[in-house]
Amino acid sequence: MSFLDRFALWLGRMTAWCFAAIVLIMVYEVAARYGFNAPTTWAHEVSILLASIGFVIGGAFCMAERTHMRISLLVDRRPRLASFSEALGLVAGAIYLGGLSYAAWRMAEKALWRFSLSGAWDPERSGSTLNSPLPGYLKALLFVGCVLFLLLILRRMLPLHNRWRLR
């Protein structure tokens, strides 16, 4: 297992705690609203951000764990197809994650690299009561998660590439 794989697994285990935080935030929110008639302005957007961290990093985590689903019916019947199937899967993954990383980069850059006239940082905001920089953060998060995912795919292509060169 490569260093990158181990890193993605570690990162996944860490980010999984975001879900625990959401549980506590929701309990607090309901108590605040029902018990004290004072709902928070932040619980909703913070929960979405925390959950998205889990969802996005979850992609790289499953790649490192090799738990992304595939239909192995044909490959099981014709084992000679196995290495071709593996290579094709990685190429498809690289195309998708490459495209998504590029898009996420462009979006994140535009949403975060913004300054007001006074020079203060002015990221894209949600426009809600809280008006948090949630959209900007989500875009940046997607970029980071995609790049990690892409690197895992490229790292796994390396041995295939070397084998092809030896032929």
Binding site: A38, P39, T41, E45, S128
Partner: peptide, 10 residues
Amino acid sequence: SRAGASLVTM
């Protein structure tokens, strides 16, 4: 909010 409503985002 200024009018004192408790806003819930959904």
